[in-house]
């Protein structure tokens, strides 16, 4: 009887404990895949030069356990919630992964922060914020309301960013960048883009972007205001158009009303040889175009 009482007490204690330490480690492939799932709290991932995945942190109250499965090429780090959980209290995960790993993180309200990972990344959080670096491989980030922040480190990459209302901050990226937001604002600062596409419904965009040879920049908004400062030498065909908005152009040619009977203002001209392409379209949003 006493033993049973003791066991029951212990069982109850497991759930009552505020935070339980996490400590897992496994040997893995240097370029394997690491998959992380955490509903609430934080997920912090750092690349390191060991061929191991190490998980630390604190399991939140209400979380049942951490599922940790490593088979060499694929590692799963998943926070499990029991049926009757109230999901109060998030889990903080701190994960070290081999630098060459491919990383996939799935969260609901957890914030995600990744540094030093060189493999492809796919990061997703419904309302948590996501911060990461681009280090050579594709990066794909999706949120509903979480903010996104991405910084490049020199190599051209393919970046794909999708958000509903999160604000997007992009720095020092090269290669191809695609951003889509409904109301989130976009702030971008990057010198050597081959292709930049930003589409937003009502978010505002401030982009300071330089193009490579024959690069292209496309920005489209319904009501958001779009501002593009072109960095470096400008050699592009410009195709700029708004239905009801205004266009301010510091390059020279004045925008023209398409017709005195219909709304619509266009601005089409060429700078340099016209090798690149800049295309900016809005319905009502204002457009501002400037050089260095």
């Amino acid at each position: 009887m006493k033993r049973m009482m003791l066991s029951l007490t212990l069982l109850v204690a497991c759930y009552a404990v505020a935070a339980e330490s996490i400590d897992e480690i496994a040997d893995v492939h240097p370029r394997g895949e690491v998959e992380v799932s955490n509903v609430a709290g934080t997920v912090t991932v750092e690349g390191w030069d060991r061929d191991q995945v190490k998980v630390g942190g604190e399991l939140g109250r209400g979380a049942e356990r951490l599922e940790f499965r490593a088979d060499g090429r694929h590692t799963l780090v998943k926070v499990i919630y029991p049926k009757s959980s109230r999901r109060s209290g998030g889990t903080d995960l701190v994960i070290r992964v081999p630098v060459g790993s491919r990383l996939s993180v799935n969260a609901v309200s957890a914030d995600i922060e990744v540094t030093g990972v060189e493999g492809a990344q796919r990061l997703q959080s419904v309302s948590g914020n996501v911060t990461t670096e681009a280090r050579g491989e594709d990066v794909r980030i999706e949120t509903v309301s979480g903010d996104l922040s991405l910084r490049g480190h020199g190599d051209p990459v393919l970046v794909s960013i999708t958000t509903v209302s999160g604000d997007v901050d992009l720095r020092d990226l090269q290669g191809e960048v695609n951003v889509q937001s409904v109301t989130g604002d976009v702030d971008l600062d990057s010198r050597e883009l081959e292709r930049l596409r930003i589409r937003t419904t009502n978010g505002d965009v401030e982009a300071r972007a330089g193009m490579t040879d024959r690069g292209s920049i496309e920005m489209e908004a319904i009501n958001g205001d779009l501002r593009l400062d072109i960095l470096g030498a400008v050699d592009a065909e410009f195709d700029i158009e708004t239905f009801n908005g205004s266009i301010r152009n510091d390059f020279g040619p004045e925008p023209r009303r398409k017709s005195q009977y219909q709304p619509g203002t266009t601005l089409r001209f060429t700078e340099g040889e016209g090798n690149g392409r800049v295309r900016i379209k809005t319905l009502n949003g204002g457009i501002t175009l400037r050089g260095d």
């Binding site: 609901v108 309200s109 419904v126 509903v164 209302s165 409904v182 109301t183 419904t201 009502n202 319904i222």
Partner: peptide, 27 residues
């Protein structure tokens, strides 16, 4: 399944897209 404030964000934003669609259709 989502927290109510997130659901509200989604609905508000979808409404903005649909308002844009209606405006463009009228134009």
């Amino acid at each position: 399944a989502l927290p109510p404030e997130t659901a509200a964000v989604v609905e508000r934003n979808l409404a903005q897209i649909r308002a844009a669609v209606a405006e463009i259709n009228q134009a």
